[in-house]
């Protein structure tokens, strides 16, 4: 009896040790990511904080680091967002509503679904090539703001569709049934019963997709967003540049002052990303209380 008891104890101690070891392992796994991010942030902040001055926002790029700014890049990024957000919202959410509410559960739908999931994982440069062929060359939009924004829309559409679908799917079936039972049509059900519950999730998805888009460089390099732009785009067909391209341009210069400028450009981009992600969370929380 006693021996049995001891063996049992040993076994428990062994399990405890495994548990403890795994605990350490998982903490390490988590902290590697966090530490890497912190190191990156601190490094960039140290490099860039001295250049984080009004000049950065009010001046155009210059060959001289002092007084060089990224006004055109920042405005280019914001304009692109303003075009991209409504276009991708309409098409993305529209597609999600169709797939979730209207489309029959058949082979055709499954093929579309598979396509969209695959597209969400396609490397962004491929969208650049598509944008170059379709918007820049075929539709003759040139290397313009609208061509860039439409290419980015293609890039984020699959992400928006998938997240909007999930948001719509999470609305309990009972709500739809109740609506139908009252004699509502499909559209009445979707617009008055499903969408109000799904909208926080959808908006979160859209905003997160937008924040992915403003950090992208590859597709825009492909369609020819320009490196030196010392004016603000004033129309949809004007040429433009965006923040990541400006940062890349500064990084490739030999002078150390430009490396600092690049760091402050990254800080601005990170701040913009944080702001967008933060507003996504706020929106979600606000609407969740209401519904």
């Amino acid at each position: 009896m006693n021996i049995f008891h001891d063996a049992n104890r040993k076994q428990i101690a062994g399990r405890r040790r495994t548990d403890w070891l795994l605990h350490i392992l998982f903490v390490t796994a988590t902290s590697i990511g966090v530490i890497a991010l912190c190191a990156l942030l601190i490094d960039i902040l140290l490099d860039g904080v001295t250049r984080l001055q009004p000049d950065l926002f009010t001046n155009f790029p210059s060959r001289k680091a002092d007084g060089s700014g990224m006004k055109s890049a920042l405005v280019g990024t914001i304009y692109m967002l303003l075009i991209m957000a409504p276009v991708s919202f309409i098409f993305g959410v529209g597609a999600a509503i169709y797939l979730e509410e209207y489309a029959g559960k058949n082979r055709f739908t499954r093929i579309i679904q598979l396509n969209i999931s695959t597209l969400a994982g396609v490397p962004s440069i491929v969208y650049g090539i598509l944008g170059l062929a379709l918007f820049v060359r075929l539709l003759a939009l040139d290397k313009s703001l609208i061509a860039g924004a439409l290419t980015m829309t293609l890039l984020v559409l699959p992400i928006i569709i998938v997240s909007a679908q999930e948001a719509i799917r999470s609305v309990p079936k009972s709500r739809r049934d109740a609506s139908f039972a009252l004699g509502a049509t499909k559209w009445q059900t979707v617009s008055r019963s499903v969408m109000p519950s799904a909208i926080p999730g959808i908006l979160t998805g859209v905003i997160l997709a937008m924040s992915r888009a403003i950090g992208e460089t590859a597709p825009l390099v492909m369609i020819g967003a320009l490196t030196y732009v010392a004016y603000l785009p004033e129309g949809l067909k004007d040429s433009f540049t965006v923040v990541p391209i400006q940062v890349y341009n500064w990084l490739s210069k030999p002078q150390v002052e430009f490396q600092e400028l690049a760091a402050s450009g990254i800080i601005v981009l990170l701040a913009l990303l944080l702001l967008m992600n933060f507003s996504a969370i706020l929106l979600r929380n606000k609407y969740q209380k209401n519904v």
Partner: peptide, 22 residues
């Protein structure tokens, strides 16, 4: 729900207007 939808719509209108002006 209607209020939310209206909000959504007005957001779209604002965006569209901004682009139109552009």
């Amino acid at each position: 729900g209607k209020v939310v939808l209206m909000l959504m719509m007005s957001m779209l209108v604002v965006f569209a207007a901004a682009c139109g002006n552009n």
